Amino acid sequence: MGPVWTLSRESGRVTIAVLIVDDSAVVRQVLQQVLAIEKTIEVVGVASDPIFAMRQMGIRWPDVIILDVEMPRMDGITFLKKIMHERPTPVVICSTLTEQGASTTMDALSAGAVSIVTKPKVGLKQFLEDASSDLIQAVKTAARANLGNLVPAAEHLRPQAVRNNTKSMAQTTEHIVAIGTSTGGTQALEAVLTALPDATPGIVIVQHMPAQFTAMFAQRLNELAKIEVREARNGDRILPNQALIAPGGQHMSVVRSGAQYQVQIKDGPLVNRHKPSVDVLFKSVARCAGRNATGFILTGMGDDGARGLKLMRDAGAVTYAQDEASSVVFGMPKEAIAIDAATHVVSLKDVPRRILQIRSC
């Protein structure tokens, strides 16, 4: 389902109608002030919990919902599932940076939320004001999301996900797979990684996601997939039957040490407004692996990764971009296709097969 934008009564311009659901009066107030900066966004309602929200939605259904996950009377996850069942609507989760909050937020993404905006426990007002551009971009991205592609991918695979890690102890790998994604990527990666058997090349992944959430995301995928999935650590070897996910808030690049590939994790400035950045990963893969790598750019807003994928292709790598029909947001793949960075354009469901065509070791 694409965006269903409304017309402002005042000017006739296209606007995005937003409903804010958060039990904190401060958060509700600050979010309203922040979003008021953007003329194409109109806050049409605020609610302290999902019960009040449903009453308002009975009068006017929003285009995008900003939703807290821990609230009285009905938690955000239950409310989200109810929305997705009754009338799928783009939801941006506004969650606190805690381990418990990260776990709940992962549940929300799995249930169909589009993206995450993090809020700290202290200094909340200043944080939200400082992050105004990110909040506005999150709402705009959510409004453009194709919700028909936000489907929980692998719940039916849980009982069969038995992992065999013997091959992941190998001392080298001849080929690596690099994947970059953003909005809609949590569901896309779940669909891809849970479809792979335990005989795959080493995989390195950048998913745009805040710090604190990537470890929980990797743990969730590890429980579902047959291969090993975990958050990358500096110096980790890239091994067959293993997927390493870049930690939020840090860049990940690939370096070569003799016959082995390793990941390098380090801080640095934002690249294309992101950290980790897909371009940082892809450019390093082009530099040190060349034709010994395969690249995939999947669903996401913006252009991060497009230039890096072009460098990979120029270095001899086979490269793929996800097609529009299967993307939640056809931004990053579209930009890669526009500059001829992709050797092939494929549906998400075809990605696992393409990975399995690669000789892993």
Rank of each mutant, 00 (worst) to 15 (best):
T294G: 06
E129I: 15
M74N: 03
D198F: 11
K349M: 06
P3N: 02
L135T: 02
A143K: 09
V18N: 00
V318I: 15
R9D: 15
I358K: 04
S168E: 10
T15P: 00
V229I: 12
N149G: 10
S257Q: 14
C94W: 00
V91R: 00
I179N: 11
V278P: 08
D304T: 10
Q171Y: 01
I65R: 04
L80I: 01
S8C: 06
V162W: 05
E231W: 07
D134K: 08
A111L: 01
T98W: 04
M57P: 07
L19G: 12
I66E: 00
E231R: 05
N149H: 12
A289F: 08
A142I: 00
V263A: 12
M209K: 09
D68F: 01
A17V: 01
A243D: 09
I176T: 13
M312V: 00
M84D: 10
D279V: 02
D22Y: 03
L135I: 13
Q33W: 04
V254Y: 07
Q242F: 03
D340F: 10
T78N: 07
R87T: 11
A218T: 02
R55N: 10
S24N: 06
Q260D: 11
V46P: 02
M57S: 09
Q264G: 07
N146A: 04
D304A: 11
A191P: 00
V21T: 07
T141M: 04
V69P: 00
I93L: 12
L356I: 06
V27I: 15
A315R: 07
S95Q: 05
S110I: 00
H274D: 01
S168Y: 01
I179A: 09
H251Q: 10
V26S: 08
I20C: 14
I20D: 11
E155N: 05
V92A: 01
G2S: 09
L244Q: 09
D303I: 13
M54C: 05
Y261W: 09
A325Q: 15
A108D: 01
A232F: 13
A315N: 06
M57T: 13
T96S: 15
K226N: 11
L128H: 04
R163N: 05
A306H: 13
Q219A: 14
D63C: 10
G76E: 02
H156C: 02
A243H: 08
R230G: 05
C94G: 00
R307T: 14
A36I: 05
L224P: 11
R28K: 07
A317L: 13
K119S: 00
G12F: 06
V346M: 12
A336N: 07
G316T: 07
E324H: 05
W61C: 10
S168T: 09
G308V: 10
Q171K: 11
M74V: 05
R60N: 11
A321E: 04
D304K: 11
D68K: 01
S11F: 05
V139F: 03
Q322V: 02
Q357A: 14
P72S: 03
G2K: 15
T343I: 13
T89F: 02
L19W: 07
S168W: 03
V280G: 13
G180M: 15
T6H: 15
I65V: 13
T200M: 14
